[in-house]
Amino acid sequence: MSTPYANIESLVSLTDAQFHTGSLILMVSYGAHFAFILYFLWTQKDLAPRYRLVPLLSALVMASAGLSLLREFSFWLETYQWNGSLYVPAEDGTTFSNAFRYGNWTITVPILLTQLPLAFALARPEIRRRAIRMSIPALLMIWTGLVGQFGETGDFTQLNIWGLISTLFFVWLIVEVHGTIRAGKAASPAPLAEFPDKLWWYFLATWGLYPIAYALPQLGMTGDVVVVRQLLFSIADISSKLIYGVILSRYLLRRSALEGYLPAQQALGDVPATGTAGR
């Protein structure tokens, strides 16, 4: 039977080192996302106009994720109080919840997935079709995971059953993503033909961190598990959103240059900057 406190963070006491490590993880996470809003807004100017929507969507993802992580950071500070030797759950009943992450993923994941066919410059009907086909299993994966994570403080039956259901939707998602990446490979210029394959393995490696973090409470309700889970969630968020956005932007910069767009060529140093407007 699960307790009213949905996440183990609300029940576990932390050492001084564990509390401040968790605080630092969350602070770096929201700070990095906010900082890269400016990066994506700035770098999109070097891309051919047809590709500029991709980094602009990355900037939107950074803002949404940053706000969510800032709220998680606030919850973290409010949930614990120092008793002279440990940071213990607050006596006023304030609780920590990872549910806000799932709410944010509901917003950001469909955007991240839509960036793929946009970056590969697929035909507009194909972009719409593939975005929908990827977003449906992604949302079902997120929402079933949300239900499951409310069972992490009990006997883990709810956690595991809904985690398995969520994993089935994840498998469906990666099949759809693989199809989009194969289409993107066929549409990529020859010098960039290897990029989609590398992106595929990057997708598996980074998105694969989420189920590990999801299942981690089964190792025990300890401060180390609490901190490691926040670390895994944050690494996954930064790599699958921020670094993913940078990778797509660099791909589009090279693609723009190959297509003869002068500002992209100048940004890559292929031609000297002369102040001449790009085509």
Score class of each variant (00 low, 15 high):
1 M>R: 09
13 S>F: 04
32 A>G: 06
33 H>P: 02
34 F>K: 01
38 L>D: 06
57 L>G: 03
59 A>G: 08
66 G>T: 08
71 R>L: 11
77 L>F: 10
77 L>S: 08
78 E>V: 10
82 W>G: 04
83 N>M: 11
86 L>V: 05
96 F>C: 04
98 N>R: 14
98 N>L: 13
99 A>H: 14
100 F>D: 00
104 N>Q: 09
110 P>W: 00
113 L>D: 02
125 P>K: 05
128 R>G: 06
130 R>G: 01
130 R>M: 12
132 I>Y: 02
132 I>M: 09
133 R>E: 04
135 S>Q: 08
138 A>F: 09
139 L>E: 07
139 L>S: 05
149 Q>M: 11
151 G>T: 11
153 T>M: 05
163 G>T: 14
164 L>R: 07
165 I>F: 13
170 F>S: 15
175 V>Y: 05
177 V>E: 04
180 T>P: 02
183 A>V: 00
185 K>P: 00
186 A>N: 12
187 A>Y: 10
191 P>R: 15
200 W>S: 01
203 F>I: 07
212 I>A: 09
218 Q>T: 15
221 M>E: 09
230 Q>W: 13
230 Q>G: 10
232 L>C: 09
236 A>V: 01
244 Y>G: 02
245 G>V: 09
255 R>V: 06
256 S>Q: 13
261 Y>A: 03
263 P>D: 07
269 G>I: 14
270 D>E: 13
276 T>G: 01
278 G>I: 06
